[in-house]
């Protein structure tokens, strides 16, 4: 269970959001500038809330009243960035292995093989990120986050920088991930159609405020993808 109740002033803009989600995939939906990225950056620990509480499964990550702010690297929250952010100096194999090494986890060839098969990236292992297509890069970023064994996975518009064809390439992997990996996810998107396919719960954001919470029915009708 993910609990978020935070406020943050960012220049002229402010985020004040409160929700609790039990879902396998919590969709954060809103137009660009609605505060989606700020919100997941706070969950990740990259941004510190001015006030409020963030907790996962009862464990506090942020509590401003008690001056608790667990640093990014101790949160065990995987983050798949919009721009993938693979390490350019490491090949795919070492990018995938990075989280395991940093968390000092034991080598688990079976888990690695499962993720590599799930994402179909076995033939890319010796390549550098510079030699990958956009879609391949996103799959590797997804695998890298998964293999750090996070307890929550944040995905920040992982498809928005891709063309339709590439989106269709990645979407099935995300659905398999939701159904097979057993890691709860927060999925940020401005695309209602995408969330309808993936999310089990929706948090709708507008100008930094939560305007609706519920199942896919809170999304705008399919005919007008806002």
């Amino acid at each position: 269970m993910l609990r978020v109740d935070v406020s943050k002033q960012l220049g002229e803009f402010s985020v004040e959001a409160s929700f609790a989600s039990e879902g396998r995939v919590t969709g954060l939906f809103g137009a660009s500038g609605a505060g989606k990225s700020s919100l997941i950056n706070m969950i990740a620990g990259l941004l510190q809330p001015d006030r409020g509480v963030i907790s996962i499964d009862g464990e506090t990550l942020d509590n401003t009243a008690e001056h608790i702010h667990i640093p990014v690297h101790r949160r065990r929250i995987g983050y798949v960035f919009q721009d993938a952010r693979l390490f350019p100096h490491l090949d795919v194999r070492h990018n995938l292995d990075y989280g395991r090494r940093m968390n000092r986890l034991a080598d688990d060839p079976a888990a690695r093989k499962r993720v590599i098969d799930l994402l179909d990236i076995g033939n890319l292992l010796d390549r550098r990120p510079g030699r990958l297509s956009g879609g391949e890069r996103h799959r590797v970023a997804l695998g890298r986050a998964l293999l750090s064994q996070p307890r929550l996975l944040l995905l920040d518009e992982p498809l928005s920088s891709l063309d339709e064809e590439r989106k269709e390439e990645i979407l099935p992997y995300l659905m398999r991930l939701r159904d097979e990996a057993g890691i709860p996810m927060v999925y940020v998107s401005h695309d209602a159609a995408e969330l309808r396919q993936l999310a089990t719960e929706i948090v709708m954001l507008r100008r930094g405020r939560v305007t609706a919470f519920g199942g896919a029915e809170v999304l705008p009708p399919a005919v007008s993808p806002a």
Binding site: H73, I77, G78, Y79, D83, R85, F87, P88, Y98, M102
Partner: peptide, 27 residues
């Protein structure tokens, strides 16, 4: 060096010192 890569390393569990050694310095 792109600080977004350093952030990514942090989310993968790297302490600031190890971020420096494994990402910033090599780059």
């Amino acid at each position: 060096v792109d600080q977004r890569l350093e952030q990514a390393a942090g989310t993968l569990g790297a302490t600031p010192w190890r971020v420096f050694l494994s990402v910033t310095l090599p780059l």
